[in-house]
Write a protein that binds this DNA or RNA. Structure first.
Lengths: 211, 211
DNA sequence: CAGCATGCTAAACGATTGTTCAGCCTGCTT
DNA sequence: AAGCAGGCTGAACAATCGTTTAGCATGCTG
């Protein structure tokens, strides 16, 4: 039944999907042809269609694969454990890039993933607030949403962050660690020492309202 | 010399560029054909090439246009004034989308823009530190870089943020304002009440080092 | 007035695209 | 042994792609 004619231990179908995931993530789905994917996977273009019906089907399969990775193996799981999730996004560069593009392209799966992140984050922050480890806020929803967007920002801007930090490889651990440390520092001690920024924004807002 | 045969007050060349900017921003350059741009601008496909030499040239022109908007009219300006810049990114949806994609696609102009943002932000934060309005940090570079990435995050995730906040239109002012307020709150008062998050990360880091 | 550059179009070019088709090979089943 | 299902390929399909060409119209310049 199983025809393992490749040297890899992966199914041919999986190899095609992985190749597509990587190329889609790097160049965007529109810039990648079925032939390029077939070449990268070492198969014929016809086989790609044979396994995934169409290019759209292949893109959906990539979406489903990434969604599965993030949701975890069990279907009833809303989300992976945060630690495993962080490790996943840290280690797999193709998944990072694909996800970043999916968020921008507005795919339904990416939207569901984002919503899941926000839900988990909001309850987590709420729990921390009860414990006293997280500061209260008058807009928990907006805070959770923005917190998620901020956590995902390095996923989109990793190239630029690494370049600004003077690192050649955007994916060497040092870059990620420095960024994480700086982020935790900002979210723990804050950036603005007093309420001047908030006040300035409030007054600017009032002026705009009156205008 | 000037042949204004269109009802608009824009040059035909500018209309083509604007159409390209919008379509590129929405779908990505690879998904948009010259014919689609020509249709949107109300001209023939050949005219697009006539004005911009090639599709790549059109993409470069869009890059240059956005760069010009951000840098300001004068060439010696490193960057627009923050207020005008914020207004620009707030009001022009096509520019937002185009920029977001440019950051992800890793265009050279987008990289230069990001670097400029970081430079301005870092000196601005440094000044604030001297004034006492900004808290000190042991990694000013990483903080400035991440600050920029966080400020740009809504540009990429605006659709998702608006959806999570229960708003239909991602670009109605309410969405932006709520997000800005939440962000300022997080950067002023912090999110974590004590050093537990930083400490947890430090110990996890130590474990990983020893492993 | 002629001459010429410029804005612009219609038509067509070859290349590449996603997709289909006919058929080969392999391994399992009966 | 016969037959069949499935992985897989090469060749070809029509459509669309970016680009080129020839030519029309306009308006400036000599």
């Amino acid at each position: 039944m199983l025809n393992m004619r490749s040297s890899s231990d992966l199914t041919t179908r999986a190899r095609i999907r992985n190749a597509a995931l990587e190329l889609f993530g790097i160049h965007g789905a529109g810039q990648v042809s079925i032939r390029a994917i077939a070449d990268a996977a070492g198969v014929s273009p016809a086989l790609v269609v044979h396994h995934f019906e169409s290019k759209e089907g292949l893109r959906r399969a990539c979406d489903a694969y990434v969604t599965g990775l993030i949701r975890g193996e069990e279907d009833d799981d809303p989300l992976q454990y945060p630690a495993e999730l962080a490790a996943l996004l840290r280690d797999s560069v193709p998944v990072r890039r694909y996800l970043a593009r999916a968020f921008l392209d507005g795919s339904a799966d990416a939207a569901a993933i984002f919503d899941g992140f926000v839900e988990v984050t909001q309850t987590w922050l709420e729990e921390g607030r009860h414990d006293g480890t997280v500061r209260p806020t008058d807009d928990p929803r907006a805070r959770a949403a923005l917190y998620v967007a901020w956590q995902l920002a390095p996923l989109v801007f990793d190239t630029h962050l690494a370049r600004v930090l003077g690192l050649n490889d955007p994916y060497e651990p040092d870059s990620t660690l420095r960024i994480m440390r700086a982020g935790l520092h900002m979210l723990t001690h804050g950036v603005f020492a007093d309420g001047h920024a908030l006040a300035a924004w409030t007054t600017a807002q009032a002026e705009e309202d009156s205008a």
